[in-house]
Design a protein around this nucleic acid. Structure first.
Lengths: 196, 196
DNA sequence: TCCATAAAACTAATGCCATTAGTATTATGG
DNA sequence: CCATAATACTAATGGCATTAGTTTTATGGA
């Protein structure tokens, strides 16, 4: 038996499908082979190792997240764009748990592929912030702050930190985003006063 | 050969020591046994499974983080206490990488032990925030926001997200904390206006 | 003082996983 | 129509946690 129509792309697609389905950013070669209807070692005709699959899946996840962000800020600027970004992140995390977690562990990937992916994800935020009259370094700081708020909020929620509380996680998230915007305005304020 | 002076506590202590040393919140039964000078299966005379060890180590980590927080706010109130908390978190994360990561994955523990540990960690923050004249639900939201900022900032930094940038992570962190405080004050402001 | 008992170590074995080595089969282009 | 390369297979390796069953030793009651 040979040539069963399985290609590297098909393997990757199935891996991504399984990550989406399970909500977990891990890949089991055994299960993957089973789903494809082949024996485990046959996978190695298409990929080098499980890590290579993770890198490829991360690449895909980063691109998806990037697109979701770009769609969210389309035609918007300023605070509206920021709220749009925050909402898009939250939706992405909820609808694509596994892919989202993959973007969180992106820095564990091999050095080479990492910077581009991180940059691809950060870019939409940087773009929106670049219109706030901050200097380049400040933009970097505030981008990190926003990502920190958004990211960890979601991962804490996902991880179950809020599960045992009656207080709405959704509302907490809105408080967090408003907090960011308000802090950002304060910084802007300070900048403009500095020039007087 | 028997009775080599190894107790359950000794096993746990060594496990914690190894987590501290490696900076990784994982335990290998094989390595653990090797360090203790016994064979792997002998560990099972003292603990039920590797997960039980992780639970115990998490308990310890949560308590340590709690103590670090309490020490940081001792004699302080208001913004000063908040800045103290943030600094303490950062220091703890840097000096106890492994334990800190353990507190991040706390929710993966069995349901039973989780709420107390999460509460123990959150309590000092709740205490400080309780003096800001917010209602109970607001306190909960703002506690989550602060934890989100602090936590993810540190885990992103640890994970290497900032490694390829010349912009200081330390300064970004300060921007984040100031952002929180400024946002908190804005909320306070709104509350007092609402009563007019 | 001695021995029964239980604690704590051991060896051997199981099962799950990723991965590698080596072999068989089949699709395809020359 | 057949040589070759691609792709699947089986078999084996090595690492891991864990379990079963056995041996050794510390200790307290006779």
């Amino acid at each position: 038996m040979a040539q069963r129509g399985i290609t590297r792309d098909a393997v990757l697609a199935k891996a991504i499908e399984m990550i989406e389905r399970s909500g977990s950013p891990t890949i089991s070669m055994r299960e993957l082979a089973e789903e494809l209807g082949i024996r485990t070692p046959s996978l190695y005709n298409h990929v080098k190792c499980v890590n290579e699959l993770l890198v490829e899946a991360s690449r895909y996840a980063a691109e998806e997240l990037r697109q979701a962000q770009l769609a969210a800020i389309d035609g918007k600027t300023g605070d509206e764009a920021l709220f749009g970004l925050a909402a898009a992140y939250r939706r992405f995390a909820q609808e694509h748990k596994g892919l989202y977690k993959l973007t969180l562990s992106l820095p564990t990937l091999p050095e080479a592929s990492q910077p581009q992916l991180a940059a691809a994800i950060a870019e939409p935020i940087l773009f929106v912030l670049s219109r706030y009259g901050l200097d380049e370094e400040q933009v970097m700081h505030w981008q990190r702050v926003l990502r920190a708020i958004i990211h960890d909020f979601l991962s804490q929620e996902e991880a179950g930190f809020f599960r045992h509380s009656p207080v709405s996680a959704e509302v907490s998230y809105q408080v967090a985003v408003r907090c960011f915007v308000s802090g950002l305005h304060a910084e802007q304020e300070e900048n403009s006063h500095a020039g007087e």
